[in-house]
């Protein structure tokens, strides 16, 4: 599905990722954990194609293709989905229109018919149920005036609508109460299948009680310093990140 080889990336000439490698097979859920500033969000944004990040070395293969060659919209159409840590407010753009436009672009790319407004309404109602969002959101401007929790649910709603092959969740759990966390996790778990994969970026172990990962990786100073099973998350929760930081500094 995804293979990252020795990836280097920087923003505003400041190196953030320094030789990161990771392999994600179909059906696997990988958790990326690490202290603030370790490069977790940078990894998520580089995979989605944020234009502000510059890849200075390494390679990313997605389904055998060079991912870094693709524009952000091409990645989205090819099945990569990033749930944003800070979803963007778009005044004046109606949420229903936003969701349907994205869905139709992805469908066109997959050779499927575009969905008209009526069929879309039926589809979106079902998905909104899943993330426990009120239909009134469809009439509102994208993320404008949404609470933090509503924005995160909206990200998961988009995930449910677009049905990506590779979902990347960038700190989707931050700032969520336990109910919202359950809703978000439920949305992600519904999509788990032998063909779909996910990368769950998180600072805390809490989310991983609901989205149980197959692998946990610890990121520090722009590279993966430790990998293990789900029990590694518990170890981090107990010991904190300081020992990781010290190890990373010592080895750098």
């Amino acid at each position: 599905m995804l293979e990252i080889r020795d990836l280097y990336a920087s923003i505003d000439s400041t190196p953030i990722l320094r030789g990161l490698s990771l392999k994600v097979n179909p059906g696997e859920v990988h958790a990326i954990m690490g202290p603030n500033g370790s490069g977790k969000s940078t990894l998520a944004q580089v995979l989605a194609g944020h234009p502000a990040y510059e890849v200075t070395g390494g390679q990313v293969l997605y389904q055998g293709r060079d991912l870094l060659e693709l524009e952000p919209e091409e990645r989205a159409r090819e099945g990569i989905f990033l749930a944003f840590q800070y979803p963007v407010e778009i005044p004046g753009v109606n949420t229903a229109y936003f969701l349907r436009s994205g869905l139709n672009e992805v469908r066109k790319h997959r050779g499927l018919e575009e969905v008209d407004a009526i069929d879309f309404l039926a589809l979106i109602r079902e998905k909104m149920n899943l993330v426990e969002m009120d239909e009134n959101f469809l009439k509102r401007a994208v993320n404008e005036g949404f609470s933090g929790g509503e924005k995160k649910r909206h990200e998961i709603l988009q995930l449910a609508v677009l049905e990506p092959r590779l979902a990347i969740l960038d700190e989707t759990d931050s700032g969520l109460d336990i109910d919202a966390l359950r809703v978000v996790a439920n949305g992600v778990n519904k999509l788990r299948s032998p063909e779909r994969s996910a990368i769950v970026v998180t600072h805390y172990q809490r989310l991983l009680e609901y989205i149980v990962p197959d692998f946990v990786h610890v990121l520090a100073r722009g590279r993966i310093v430790r990998s293990g099973g789900k029990e590694l998350a518990l170890e981090l929760e107990a010991k904190g990140y300081d020992w990781i930081k010290e190890e990373a500094t010592a080895s750098a």
Binding site: A48, V93, L162
Partner: peptide, 22 residues
Amino acid sequence: DEEALYYLRARGLDLGQARGVL
């Protein structure tokens, strides 16, 4: 808004479409 353009592109709209929407 560059971030809004990127957000729309990350959902499958190309740059021209994203500019059109905004």
